[in-house]
Design a protein around this nucleic acid. Structure first.
Lengths: 215, 215
DNA sequence: TAGATTGTTAATCGATTAACAATC
DNA sequence: TAGATTGTTAATCGATTAACAATC
């Protein structure tokens, strides 16, 4: 029964993350000249259950062909569309310290259509300059630049004590989603999508298992 | 009934992560001079359920006092011990490019007792030098340095094509846990704890919600 | 003692997986 | 048609939450 229940159901966050992973795999498969793939084969690559792969996809539509599997190129295109990876997103990078610079040069972002359109940093030695043709502006000019460049996503990589203030300015300037690397819990309104990346917590879970092993 | 069921039960990964979060909060509370806190108060700070806080703690023991709550200093110390944060861990940082440098200078790691004891990079311009008194060695000398410095944790921040090879060398040298920032799925034996940090996937989930909002 | 809050059990909720009719 | 694999329903599993006796 081909019904579009995928409009109504709430989609688990983990399903979205897996979609991301499938997409990258499909991209590789396409480059390798693979034409079709079954849910079973796809699942094996990530030690998942084939039913989970099919269910993740079923949230969004019917992309497969019974007896065949999925056409790699077609499914990749569908997933890219669903994830918003079929277009370019203008991103503002806030903070050009060590982490900010690393993120600026990180190749993975650009590959999926995320283009850093403006860098924001209040260091007088940096304001007014460019980095790889991307302008560096002070927070004073932040709102103007964000609007002018239709930036919707901000990557926050400033010291923790500056993060909340700068985020409020970003939201006031019209930013719709924030990826936060500052080790602080940010408070934003519900109209803004916030994702925290906590670098310390990952090390701490590792040390838990090491410490446990030693006990 | 004070039984140590916490020795047998399998502990959810998410519970460990929350323990990390509680610990940091308790640290702050201690600095602020707060003596006791209830599961309810603690839960509210993270929009969690108080039963969840109590259950997370109950995996490891009985730390609270009925009618009172938890003594901040005592609970903090217990959780630090459980997470292995009551001691110093020697860490090897592999790859000193943009991301590696950022991670090297990242203050959050050192704060919780993770000390970068050696940097590994094969750039001839870097080998043999030091960065903030930490030696930089080539992968040729990796095994020797890791053993000499009793390093158990490695942070991998090399280009994706080098990640698998270097990880195998790390494991051969006796590394017990790997935090991987390279955008590649690493394959390691089951005796090694592996945690992947995928920077792209976070942006991709954000763009999913933005794209959905626009549909 | 009366009030507060824990630790734990039982109920609920949600996500994963097995099973299978539909169908290419 | 026979074989393969989907999309979906129903069963299972695990994690979250409500409820409450125990007890400070």
């Amino acid at each position: 029964m081909a019904r579009a229940n995928h409009r109504l159901t709430k989609i688990p966050e983990m399903a979205i993350r897996r979609l991301s992973v499938y997409t990258r795999c499909l991209q590789q498969l396409e480059e390798d000249g693979v034409k079709t793939i079954s849910s079973q084969e796809l699942a094996e690559r990530f030690s998942l259950n084939s039913a989970q792969v099919r269910k993740d996809l079923a949230y969004f539509g019917e992309f497969g062909v019974r007896g065949i599997g999925y056409y790699v190129a077609g499914l990749k295109a569908e997933l890219q569309r669903i994830l918003g990876l079929d277009r370019e997103w203008s991103v503002a990078l806030v903070g050009l310290g060590n982490l900010g610079s690393a993120l600026f040069h990180y190749k993975g972002f650009a590959r999926q259509g995320f283009r850093i359109a403006v860098v924001i940093d209040d260091d007088p030695a940096k304001i007014g300059r460019e980095i790889e043709s991307v302008p560096i502006v002070g927070s004073r000019d932040m709102a103007r630049e964000i609007k002018a460049r239709a930036v919707q996503i901000a990557i926050v990589a400033v010291p923790p004590e500056a993060a909340q203030t700068v985020t409020e300015q970003l939201v006031a300037a019209g930013i719709k989603a924030v990826l936060n690397f500052a080790p602080t819990r940010l408070r934003v309104g519900r109209e803004v999508r916030l994702k925290n990346v906590d670098l310390s917590i990952e090390l701490e879970t590792l040390s838990f298992y090491l410490a446990k092993g030693a006990r």
